[in-house]
Amino acid sequence: MFRNTYDSDNVVFSPQGRLHQVEYASEAVKQGSAVVGLRSKTHSILLALKRSLGELAAYQQKMYRIDDHVGIGIAGLTSDARVLSNFMRQQAMGSRMQFNRPIPVNRLVSSIADKAQVNTQEYGRRPYGVGFLVIGQDKNGPHLYEFSPSGNSYEYYAMSIGARSQSAKTYLEKHYESFIDCSLEDLIRHGLHALRETLQQDKELTISNTTIGIVGPAGAHEKDVPPEGGFRILENEPIQVYLSRMQPKRAPEEPAAAEQTGAANEPEEGATHGSTADEDVQMGE
């Protein structure tokens, strides 16, 4: 079988000017369960859907604390995420050791983006197969960033990555203008609604399959949050209160319609992965 070779390593461009290995890595991100991130004036939050390998297995961890003021949600290869989050923790601690200051969030994200970029250019390497949503706060307030295997990082008002994240994105695009003035509780409710869009038909958000990560001051239902409002992860019982405040699911045809309109608004994702005009690649069987 003929199979051209422009996708066999990451140092050769395809005649269309693309790096297929990098794009495949982005596909790995889409294999992971969804993570949603939102930002208001006071808070940045992450919401993630945890998967479990089966009834007998525990749910896979989706969020990592990096420092008091930073945390991440991951989609893709967990093992790659562990390596990168470890690196981020080292960077954060290095900043505290050298300057006694919390590392500015954008620099932390750039530092892993730079690492990912090396893997898209140097021979014999493979790109990371994981994407992050990073939330953190510094003197400029709360932030939300996306990191992807291509070595790009962007700041967002709201974003989602992972499986079926397009549906969540559609929800976020519809509502993001109201996020900036939201209370933490409302922001979480929006996040849960967005995350719910990524579920398969017969699934529900439960306290065991949902994780919430927060930076910003304590919310009405939180206790024991230090005054700086550093990163914390909510799981299990404490998130029941947020789940029960969700609006009941809409009629089944509505999200499907939304999904179609949303796809057009995604130049980055559409251009790199969604296209079927990809002629120089035939994936092996």
């Binding site: 990592y64 604390r65 923790r89 601690m93 505290r96 050791m97």
Partner: peptide
């Protein structure tokens, strides 16, 4: 003290 604190932070992670 600084080093102990960082080791404790890694333990927390």
């Amino acid at each position: 003290v600084k080093k102990v604190k960082q080791r404790l932070e890694w333990y927390r992670h």
